[in-house]
Amino acid sequence: MGWNVRYVCRKAAGAIVVGLLAAVASLAATPASAHKKLDGLAWSNFSYHHVTAYNDQWKSPMTKAPQRWSNHGRVALRSASTANCNIKVGRYSSSSYGHYYNYHVNGGTTGCYITLNARTIARKADRFQNFVHSVFTHELGHALSLAHNDRNDSIMCHCRNRNTMTRRQPHDNSDVTSYYNTGYTRRF
């Protein structure tokens, strides 16, 4: 009977260890591989340029979003008149709130272009500046190689509440750290 108890305990302990290892392995594998976006920029220290001026309603969130991304240890975004990524707020006949475009220049260098749609944002936002901040942070996330996902704890989810989730989330931070793990250069 004593042997049976020890045997059962050993088996149970083994099963727990195997289960824990599997859980750790899946947690470690999920962030970097699941949301990788090949259309992001190769560097996390890119420059951006607002192609028009904005009034005060727009200026604050359009300034804060890149600044807050830059607080991430692997990210450095700077405003420059000649930039890797151009930014525009316009009025488009589309249901979307924002777009991220990625294109190739001179056979290799990647540039990007981000648009925000004032037409839909103004109509849908309950907390306007939060909403703008959320959309711009999301689009900058694409430039940092983050793809859409279905997690409600990520700025990259269509499902997020744009009136309340304005900043990058721990899951997004972890993905960016993983993608740009050799300084400012993309790993994949």
Binding site: Y97, N102, H158
Partner: peptide, 24 residues
């Protein structure tokens, strides 16, 4: 040019990829 299509043309780019943030 700071606009997508014109920037692409001036830069010689022929391909671009776009992702959008839509209501869910």
């Amino acid at each position: 040019s700071p606009t997508t299509a014109v920037a692409m043309e001036q830069a010689g780019a022929r391909e671009a990829v776009v992702s959008a943030d839509y209501p869910n």
